[in-house]
Amino acid sequence: MHPAVSIIVFSTFSGVGFGICFWLGVLGPNANAQTVIIAGFFGLVLAVIGLLSSLFHLRRPARAVRALSQWRSSWLSREGVMAIVTLSCVFLFLVGRFFNLFIDLVTILAVLMSLLSLATVYSTAMIYTQLKAIPAWHTILTPLVYIGFALLSGMAFIFSFMSSLLGDGMLLVNLVLLLGSWGIWFLWVLRSDRIGLGSSNVETATGLGKFGNITPFEPPHLGPNYLTREMGYTLPRSKSRLLRATTLTIGLVIPLLLFCFIFFSSIPWLVEVFKFLYFCSAFAGIFISRWLFFAEARHTTMLYYRKE
């Protein structure tokens, strides 16, 4: 699939944004108000950047408001609704903390905020997961990867910039998240390599299986078209391997090393630098992995166009 920047920014930024919100819900009811508010503000901003970016993917963004109407059937619609509800909840929570209002309610809002954040990220993932035509995406692992990365990047953000919010135990959580989310990603990649186009092949696509091996001969139009541009993106195998290795290096190995440096370093400013790098590296890894998520995905439509 064509790796559109707008969509990658959408899902990664909203992921980190809602990831922060999730953790604020977990950590925030009692933590330092100022830090919580600053963190929450960043969460909001990142999520909104993500959501706004998705508008760039629309050819008719002015009609985006209609996207809230079909929540009964459409995951994209649900995602929109959930995002708005979640953001409202976050906003209320932050307002509550800022003005120190409705203290009891804030606790409930915090729980709600965490759950809604998870649900929103889940909805985002389901936009892709539901697409049977892209078998690599059509798995429960996809929302797990999305949620895993959202939680990881949210945690990494807080860890990097507002570590005062975190207790000691949270270091372990951070480590578990780092290993766990990349672990799920790895499983996802293994599955996606194995599944290919699932049970779809050119024989089922054409129904011509009984005539032996079927090979696409001539495409309908020799130049590219919307479908081949949108669904025919190909990444050469060698490039794919290199990018996966890069992803793992940047997203997992370097953060792990940095984690060790942070743990063992006693120079405060260096710790801060490492922390900063930690988030950047983890997020960059996630970003590249999301690019790969699209770029490597194969769509059944291409069975009609070329030897898949």
Binding site: P61, R63, A67, K132, A205, L227, E230, M231, Y304, Y305
Partner: peptide, 13 residues
């Protein structure tokens, strides 16, 4: 609104 998701959802192009 031109999001293109339906085109992705269609296995046939």
């Amino acid at each position: 609104m031109g999001c293109g998701l339906c085109a992705w959802a269609c296995p046939y192009g």
